[in-house]
């Protein structure tokens, strides 16, 4: 059982680190802000989630596990909100810059309020 938990932990942390590195490469490699946001979302969801889940298997179930789960939850709840705020700010900026219709034909109306 202990052995199994150790193997699971190794696998999770290794895959998580792989996603972290891939996300960082994506942030460097992709051409513009929006596409970079996809790469950033990758580190926020899978990279962080898998590494922290792997750490969960390193300790006895207890208060430390609760904290790890809380960190994962906070990251997963805040990451889309921050990404959306960033996307909205970029679109707002482009609208202000005077391009009434952006490069992809969208026309104003960046309100996020339903």
């Amino acid at each position: 059982m202990d052995m199994l938990a150790d193997v699971a932990s190794w696998a999770l942390i290794a895959v998580g680190t792989f996603f972290l590195l891939t996300g960082a490469i994506g942030i460097l490699r992709l051409p513009d802000v929006f596409t970079r946001m996809h790469a950033a979302g990758m580190t926020d969801t899978m990279g962080a989630g898998l590494v922290l889940a792997g750490l969960c298997f390193q300790v006895e179930a207890g208060l430390v596990t609760v904290r790890l789960v809380l960190v994962i939850l906070f990251l997963w709840f805040t990451s889309p909100v921050a990404t959306h705020a960033l996307a909205r700010a970029v679109l707002h900026d482009r609208d202000l810059a005077g391009s009434a219709s952006g490069p992809d034909g969208r026309n104003g109306g960046t309100s996020s309020k339903p």
Partner: peptide, 17 residues
């Protein structure tokens, strides 16, 4: 909207109605 943003590759930029 948050589920769309959480899955990488898609990202919600605005909602009207």
């Amino acid at each position: 909207a948050n589920s769309i943003t959480l899955t990488p590759g898609t990202l919600t930029t605005g909602i009207v109605g």
